[in-house]
Design a protein around this nucleic acid. Structure first.
Length: 809
RNA sequence: GCCGCUGUGGCGAAACAGGCAGACGCAAGGGACUUAAAAUCCCUCGGUGGAAACACCGUACCGGUUCAAAUCCGGUCAGCGGCACCA
């Protein structure tokens, strides 16, 4: 079969017949199947796209045939750095390259033969989309969820922009790999931390991979503890956060982070020079070296002392860079006997080591960091750690010197970017009125096109006077626009809400429509977004829910991560490694359906693995085998089926088994086994067709079942076969075959026979045979006879239809 | 260091609920058809021993529960991914 021409033929026909158009009227039967939209890149679709989009499309087609009104949209995450960097290199405007890349990708995606309904396409870089991204920003601002503050932020000196915590990987920029430095900047943040608890607890009810949920839990990083108030001699108070209040009697010093404002206030005159030197040094070393956990702990005594509220003891105050200002209270208590870092620190600076927890195993090695029993802790002596944590915090609480406290590792989401190719932040800065949000009626704040975007550490927009200079919406005076653009993750945090109502000019989406269309029923994409996109999207959904726009709590009910197709050498495909495999040659040789089928059959979907084309030929052969069958069978007699004989019963069993298995496997993204079952069905049909008295009606019936089951996996090919069989309507309008359970009931079953739990052989019995009959049959075979000879059967375990196990002595 | 996942033939992988390990394929070997090749069809294919019937071993490793473990429990090792001075 000429795959190329049938692909084109059916794609045209499908488009003409609007076969895959989504009909919102049927939203009560909707199935929202979403693949993470793609970044428009200049290079052609690679195997990964095929694996993600092609196979998920097969899943969507399967759902369609199961009677759902499937919504499978596609769009482009079109803002972002690569287009801008490309522009810097070549001088080609990002809009131009992006739109042309999108055009190319659209063409290729269409050639894949997926069901995408392009009427619902979105491109995040278009004003009709980013207008609503800006709307989202303003709504968050209005509801206290967007705010501006000066803070030490992650700065990538190569990309010349700040990065969110999530975009920093092992201290390096996730985009370009450059070492990230700290910089103090005034930036916009989204208050994702408001939702920390719900983002955490909501995970429990999601049908998501455990791994991804664990990563989010980890990232949110809830820790139960307490705050303890220490008072300096001058009366200033500061809090420390601890999860080990039970060790409070063991405190021998406290530490403030170098950035902590009290450091400068409390430092004594004689220590000032040294402390300042230390602060300066750490702010520099931080930039270079603060990653290594093995790094030696350093710190400096600031000359002042603080009072431990539980026992009134005076302890020295240190300043040390192993305490992070951004976590907890930016201050910790030092308990060298029961914390590894504190132990190392105390040894180095000769601080006392007070043991206050006894190791239940009797050992006296230090530091001892597990729970134990309290000692040297006055009236708390003898308490187990867990109880003591509560008791001590309760005591502090009555003294107003502390309280129970929950801390999260999650930080607010920094969304300002000093880059050009993004959605402008819709805020105007007025000398009189401060930061003023752009009125809704003035949206979108258009991204100017004629801009010098060479990076120099400042936002490119800052140099565009026509953009920057504006009037304050409040007082009408001269004012400047915010020169930054939004993190592209803001664009992608809500796109799934726009798809079903993508042409709405009055609202980002009509809540009436969106509440019927969402949540997404199946979301498919890579696991690399676990702590970024997937977390942000959940946050935005919850925020919009609380503003009254949405009636659901989670955007993505069920999530599947596709595996990654590696290069033949087992490494991730990359141009630099020279191991990139293009799908094109396979499509030219075999056709897109064969490539799709091979990707289904050759890998476990969520695992992926190294590419190896050894088996693709066999898939082509498999298709030929089906084609030959159809060519032969198309003229066969059809119509009412004669009463089935034993051979027909076997055939019907194979058919029912295939239907049941393929149905279950497709639903579970277990494509490899689904294809295996189809292969078995083909073999069974061939076998039946080769029997002497085979009846044509049965062959036709099962071949049609086969084509229907195959259709989601090889859409063009199946459509062609379906029409060769003489059918006028599309196979995708065909109902999915229903398994006839009665055909699965066999007259006879083969059961395994064991003696003392060792396999001895097999025997065939009537499936409704009683236990005695089964035993007798099992004892009839030779290996069993031998094994049982001369021994006494103590017991026989019978699992109906499966096995019998004789226990002998 | 912490969290999560994975570990099954020469290879990709299956095993749905503790019940016949290796479905379905690839590769390999043998055969049929053919002047020959391709295509197609059939057979063998975890290991060891054996001519064979058959026996023993086998799901990373050690141990446990059970009539029965790839599957459940405890421990160890290896690989992958994530987090990492988070107090």
């Amino acid at each position: 079969m000429d795959m190329k021409s049938i692909e084109q033929k059916w794609q045209k026909k499908w488009e003409k017949d609007k076969l895959y158009s989504f009909n919102r009227k049927n939203a009560d039967k909707k199935f929202y199947c979403l693949e993470m939209f793609s970044y428009p890149s200049a290079s052609k679709l690679h195997l990964g796209h095929w694996y993600n989009y092609g196979l998920t499309d097969s899943y969507a087609r399967y759902k369609k045939m199961k009677g759902y009104e499937v919504f499978e949209p596609m769009g482009f995450d079109a803002f972002g750095l690569p287009a801008e960097n490309y522009a810097i290199k070549t001088g080609i405007h990002p809009e131009k390259s992006t739109l042309s890349n999108i055009a190319t990708m659209e063409k290729q995606l269409k050639a894949m033969g997926a069901m995408f309904d392009w009427n619902y396409e979105i491109k995040t870089c278009m004003p009709d989309y980013y207008k609503w991204t800006q709307w989202l920003f303003l709504k968050l601002y209005e509801n206290g969820l967007a705010y501006r503050k000066e803070a030490p932020v992650n700065w990538c000196p190569s990309c010349n922009t700040v990065l969110a915590n999530e975009q920093v990987q092992e201290g390096h920029c996730e985009r370009c790999g450059t070492q990230v430095v700290k910089k103090n900047l005034t930036q916009w943040f989204f208050r994702i931390t408001n939702y920390a608890e719900e983002l955490l607890s909501g995970l429990n009810n999601l049908d998501w991979p455990e791994k991804t949920k664990a990563m989010q839990r980890n990232w949110i990083g809830k820790s139960l503890g307490g705050e303890v108030v220490f008072q300096a001699e001058n009366g200033d108070e500061f809090k420390v956060f601890t999860t080990r209040a039970d060790t409070l009697f063991g405190v021998s010093y406290v530490v403030l982070a170098p950035e902590h404002p009290l450091v400068k206030k409390l430092v004594t005159k004689d220590r000032k020079a040294e402390v300042n030197k230390y602060i300066e040094k750490t702010s520099k070393t931080e930039e270079i070296e603060r990653l290594s956990t093995a790094r030696e702990k350093t710190g400096v005594f600031i000359g002042a002392y603080a009072i431990n509220p539980i026992n009134g003891k005076k302890v020295p105050i240190y300043c040390a860079d192993y305490v992070l200002y951004s976590y907890g209270t930016g201050a910790v208590m030092g308990v060298p006997a029961h914390d590894e870092r504190d132990y190392v620190f105390a040894k180095k600076y000769g601080l006392p080591i007070n043991v206050v927890i006894r190791d239940p195993s009797g050992k006296t090695d230090l530091p001892f960091c597990d729970d134990g029993t309290l000692i040297n802790s006055l009236e708390f002596d003898g308490m187990p750690s867990e109880e003591a944590r509560k008791a001590i915090l309760n005591r502090l609480s009555t003294l107003s010197k502390g309280q129970h406290k929950i801390n999260y590792r999650l930080r607010d989401w920094l969304v300002s970017r000093q880059r050009y190719w993004g959605a402008p932040i819709p805020v105007i800065h007025c000398e009189k009125c401060g930061a003023v949000p752009v009125p809704y009626k003035d949206l979108p704040v258009l991204l100017p096109k004629d801009v010098e975007f060479k990076p120099d550490g400042e936002s490119p927009l800052k140099k565009c006077a026509s953009f920057m200079n504006t009037k304050c919406p409040k007082c009408g005076g001269k004012a400047k626009r915010d020169p930054d653009t939004l993190d592209t993750f803001v664009c992608s945090s809500w796109y799934y809400l726009r798809y079903p109502d993508n042409k709405n000019e009055d609202m980002p989406f009509d809540p009436e429509i969106i509440n019927r269309m969402l949540p997404v029923d199946k979301y498919v994409g890579g696991p690399e977004h676990a702590c970024m996109h997937l977390l942000y999207a959940r946050f935005i959904t919850k925020a919009l829910r609380d503003m009254g726009y949405l009636k659901f709590d989670e955007p993505f009910t069920s999530l599947t991560h596709q595996g990654i197709i590696l290069g033949p050498d087992g490494n991730r495909m990359s141009k630099s490694k020279g191991n990139v495999v293009s799908p094109d040659t396979y499509i030219d040789t075999y056709g897109s359906d064969i490539l799709r089928l091979y990707l289904m059959f050759g890998f476990a979907y969520t695992e992926g693995g190294p590419w190896d084309d050894n088996g693709i030929k066999s898939i082509a052969k498999f298709a030929d085998r089906i084609e030959r069958l159809v060519e032969k069978v198309k003229t066969y007699k059809r119509g009412k089926l004669p009463e089935p004989e034993i051979t027909e019963k076997e055939l019907l069993f194979s058919e029912a088994y295939a239907i049941k298995s393929v149905d279950r496997d497709m639903n579970a993204f277990s494509f490899n086994t689904a294809v295996a079952r189809l292969m078995e069905l083909v073999t069974a049909i061939y076998k039946y067709d080769g029997t002497e008295n085979r009846r044509e009606e049965y062959v036709v019936k099962t071949v049609e079942t086969l084509i229907t089951l195959l259709a989601p996996c090889a859409p063009h090919f199946s459509e062609e076969l379906w029409s060769v069989m003489g059918n006028k309507k599309s196979v995708f309008l065909q109902e999915y075959p229903v398994c006839d359970e009665s055909a699965l009931v066999k007259q006879e079953v083969e059961i395994a026979v064991q003696v003392n739990s060792k396999m001895k052989g097999k025997t065939v019995v009537a499936s409704d045979a009683d236990d005695e009959t089964v035993k007798a049959a099992a004892l009839g075979i030779d290996p069993v006879k031998n094994a049982v000879a001369g021994k006494q059967i103590v017991k026989a375990i019978i699992v109906k239809g499966r096995l019998v196990n004789f226990i002998v002595k």
